[in-house]
Each structure stands twice: as C-alpha cells, then as structure tokens.
Simulated scan of single mutants.
Amino acid sequence: MRDARILVVDDEKEIRDLIEIYLKNEGFHVLHAQDGVEALHILSQQDVDLLILDVMMPRMDGIQACLKIREAKHMPILMLSAKSQDLDKIHGLSTGADDYMTKPFNPLELVARVKSQLRRYLLLNNAKSPTQDHDEIEIGELLINTSTHEVHVGEREVKLTPTEFSILELLARHRGMVFSAERIYERVWEEPFYQSDNTVMVHVRKIREKIEENTRAPRYIKTVWGVGYKIES
C-alpha cells in the first residue's frame, strides 16, 4: 500500500499542503490539482490509486468531476466538503464517491480512511491475477466473482466501486443473515459507526440501481425494516 499514488483536488493550497504532509509521512506519493478540470487532465495522463476530492471548487466542482471520472475510472474517491448536512453527504455519495468527510477534518482520520479505501482497491486489483482460482457466488442471475471482483446480472456486466463490491460480497457470502447498517459499516469501513451516518443506505441504493430490475421491489438485496439488509438464499 505504500507508494500508492493519491491525487488531492482542492482549490485551497493550504489544505492540499496539509493533506500532503500527512500522506507523505505514510509513504504515499501525492499529486495535486486545484479543480476538477485539472484533475481530469492528470487522470488522463497518469495512473492514480485514490482521489481526495473537494466539493466546492471553481471551473468544475467535485460533484461534476466525480460524475465525469466515474464514466471511466473505478478507483476510490473520498469527498471533502464544508457542507455537513445529511442531504449534502447523500448527494456526494450518490455521484459515485466511496466516502465523505466534512471540513474541518482530523488529518489522522483522513489518513485512516484513505488506508481503508486503498486496502479494498488494491485487493481488487491484485485479485485480478489470472493465476488465481475463481471463487464465484451465484444467486439467481446474479454472479459475483470474488477473485476478479466482477459482477454480472445475466449477460450484463455491472461496474461497482470497491466499496459497493465489498458490501455486496458481504451480504452474498452470508445469505439469509440480516446485517444492520452499523454492522455493515464496521465490517466494510473497519471503523466505528456513527448514529447519524447515512453512508451504508446510500451505497445500498447505488448497488440496487445497478443490479436490480426494479429498485422498488428488489430481487436481491432485501430491506428488513428496522433491522437492516440481507440477500436471501
């Protein structure tokens, strides 16, 4: 995980420099961009393992940039924003971000979240080695290959972010078991869950939009009201 390339996108130089100090102390290679336009240019020229993306920026903000990046890239995206309302967080995650932190933030917490996201992403990439045996989970027309991190519904390939895949794999490996949002968060993010956090709900909604024919009557990920989520056997 050391030497991973991280692109920090923020129009405030002081924040970019602060983040760089903490990331470099952990052995990461840090790239800078001051807005979404510059970030897209860098991503077209260089490989990046993780993106830290501010929401409020000139020319192209973080929301627009995230939507554009997700058309072709699947690396983890961690959003930063001065907006702390739940609706702002839901909106950010709905555009394809894997995680969301509000400003001002604790740099050590930011580093911890970066490491958590990178573990999943690098595991995903390393798992795509052709020498590994396939490990497939099949549920109806849903096929999950945990070796290559590929998902198909029938003949259609579904592109999931590393976080989305981790949630789907967790539920699929424990079919019939109900997982609360708290338990999913602590298993996937590997950090304590906070009462007001809507992160899991947003990610489950995004997964359903990708794998379900009818999100109002989901075939795979079921909601157990007041308890959590499950995939039935």
Score class of each variant (00 low, 15 high):
Met1Ala: 15
Arg2His: 10
Ala4Pro: 04
Ala4Arg: 15
Leu7Trp: 07
Leu7Met: 09
Val9Leu: 01
Val9Lys: 01
Lys13Ala: 09
Ile15Ser: 05
Asp17Gln: 10
Leu18Asn: 08
Glu20Leu: 03
Asn25His: 10
Val30His: 06
Leu31Ile: 11
Gln34Trp: 03
Val37Thr: 05
Leu40Pro: 05
Leu40Glu: 07
Ile42Gln: 00
Gln45Ala: 12
Asp47Gly: 14
Ile52Asp: 00
Val55Asp: 03
Met57Tyr: 01
Pro58Lys: 00
Arg59Met: 02
Arg59Cys: 03
Asp61Leu: 00
Gly62Arg: 02
Cys66Pro: 05
Lys68Ile: 12
Arg70Lys: 13
Arg70Glu: 10
Glu71Tyr: 13
Glu71Phe: 10
Lys73Pro: 03
Ser81Gly: 05
Ser81His: 07
Ala82Arg: 00
Lys83Tyr: 11
Gln85Gly: 04
Asp88Ala: 05
Ile90Phe: 07
His91Val: 11
Gly92Asn: 06
Gly92Met: 06
Leu93Gln: 02
Asp99Ala: 06
Asp99Trp: 03
Met101Thr: 08
Lys103Ile: 03
Lys103Cys: 04
Pro104Trp: 01
Pro107Thr: 06
Arg113Phe: 07
Arg113Val: 02
Lys115Pro: 04
Tyr121Gly: 02
Ala127Gly: 15
Lys128Pro: 15
Pro130Ile: 13
Thr131Tyr: 11
Thr131Gln: 13
Gln132His: 14
Gln132Pro: 13
His134Glu: 14
Asp135Ala: 12
Ile139Trp: 04
Gly140Val: 04
Gly140Met: 05
Gly140Lys: 04
Glu141Leu: 10
Leu142Glu: 05
Leu143Lys: 10
Ile144Thr: 04
Ile144Ser: 07
Thr146His: 10
Thr146Arg: 13
Thr146Val: 15
Thr148Ser: 14
His149Pro: 07
His152Glu: 15
His152Ser: 13
Val153Phe: 12
Arg156Ala: 11
Glu157Asp: 10
Val158Asn: 06
Val158Tyr: 07
Leu160Phe: 02
Thr163Asn: 08
Glu169Tyr: 09
Arg175Val: 03
Arg175Cys: 02
Arg175Asn: 03
Gly176Ser: 06
Phe179Ile: 05
Phe179Gln: 02
Ser180Thr: 11
Glu182Leu: 08
Glu182Met: 11
Arg183Lys: 14
Tyr185Trp: 11
Trp189Phe: 15
Glu191Thr: 12
Phe193Ile: 06
Phe193Glu: 08
Tyr194Cys: 07
Ser196Asn: 12
Asp197Lys: 07
Thr199Leu: 14
Val200Gln: 09
Met201Thr: 10
Val202Trp: 04
His203Val: 08
His203Thr: 06
Val204Asn: 08
Val204Thr: 06
Arg205Cys: 09
Ile207Gly: 02
Ile207Trp: 00
Glu212Lys: 03
Asn214Asp: 11
Asn214Trp: 06
Thr215Ser: 12
Arg219Trp: 14
Tyr220Val: 04
Lys222Met: 12
Gly226Val: 01
Tyr229Asp: 09
Lys230Val: 05
Ser233Arg: 09
